[in-house]
């Protein structure tokens, strides 16, 4: 059969059928290599309605893992009904595949949708992305723990990881570099977190969703326009076009360097985490964690 996808970084071209087999096989390999989870464990997949998270859910289901979904309603409209549409597509995927989807609506549970929460809390210079990230991390972790899941899986692909890595390297943010990993062990108050797609290019995940016929939200989050992460992805993709494999090497060599101790923690660090008195998730302050502090402050306005 005629090749459909050419992966220059692997010097590999595959037809549709083989590609649709190859991606899950590779995913299985990464799940084992990075000791993400075992078949008897329960996985909670963070589902956004986008190509990566829906493909991840599809792949884990096909591989025979027990994977339920979690959709977080952020209440972002942007004139295109962004959250409503991504919710609809997530529900559609779940029902078509007979899968279980948990839904948390931020406005219902915390009083306001993300854009208003961000405005009221004066975080993130006019962009709600920082507050959105904080809320998503908090909620994913809470649901995984409350409902007894062993592990939380997100759809981050290699381009996502390389862009974050690039940003953290430009700043030499040791704290972030040390924690960036395909699999983060559970710790007091925090669920285990894994990224089974972290070695696939973004383009490969789009090709998987397309060839598999997964209907995903094509529109970008209205707040992502002009985001630094997208700019970094663009820079890395220019490099990739000129030198195929650059992105992959950048990321893999980083993982190796971290494994061999290039980013060892400063000795006094690490121990200084306390459980938040409200939610139990770890925080570096003696008081409420930043999410609970944000929600608390809103009640007083």
């Amino acid at each position: 059969m005629k090749a459909s996808v050419h992966m220059r970084q692997h010097k590999l071209a595959l037809c549709r059928d083989h590609y649709l087999e190859w991606i899950p096989e590779q995913t299985e390999r990464f799940i084992k290599k990075y000791e993400m989870f075992r078949r008897e464990e329960r996985v909670l997949v963070a589902v956004s309605g986008g190509k990566d998270s829906l493909s991840l859910w599809d792949i884990l289901h096909r591989l025979g893992y027990q994977a339920d979904g979690l959709y977080i309603g952020l209440g972002i409209d942007g004139g295109v009904g962004y959250s409503d549409e991504s919710h609809r597509l997530s529900e559609k995927f779940a029902s078509e595949n007979g899968l279980r989807l948990h839904v948390v609506d931020v406005a219902k549970e915390y009083g306001q949708p993300i854009p208003i929460l961000a405005e009221m809390s004066h975080r993130g210079q006019g962009r709600p992305c920082a507050v959105c990230g904080l809320a998503k991390r908090h909620i994913m972790n809470r649901i995984a723990r409350d409902l007894g899941y062993d592990v939380l899986a997100t759809g981050h692909n290699l381009d996502d990881e390389a862009a974050v890595l690039f940003g953290n390297t430009l700043q030499w943010s040791g704290n972030f570099l040390r924690r960036q990993s395909p699999a983060l062990r559970e710790s007091p108050g925090l669920a285990r977190k894994v990224k089974p797609l972290c070695r696939f290019y973004e383009r490969e995940m789009a090709a998987y969703a397309l060839l598999r016929g997964i209907e995903y939200i094509y529109e970008e989050c209205p707040f992502a326009e002009g985001a630094t992460s997208i700019y970094y992805k663009e820079l890395l993709n220019r490099l990739e076009t000129d030198k195929p494999g650059s992105k992959l090497i950048f990321y893999l060599r980083f993982l190796e360097a971290r494994e061999t101790g290039l980013f060892a923690p400063a000795p006094e660090e690490a121990a200084n985490l306390h459980p938040c008195p409200n939610c139990g998730q770890p925080t570096s302050t003696d008081d409420l964690c930043s999410f609970c502090r944000m929600i608390e402050k809103l009640k007083t306005v």
Binding site: S4, R203, A207, E240
Partner: peptide, 16 residues
């Protein structure tokens, strides 16, 4: 940027 897109013709993916 070629890395940033997939190309299709008549619904089929095509190579670079």
């Amino acid at each position: 940027i070629p890395e940033a897109v997939l190309a299709t013709r008549d619904g089929e993916m095509i190579l670079e």
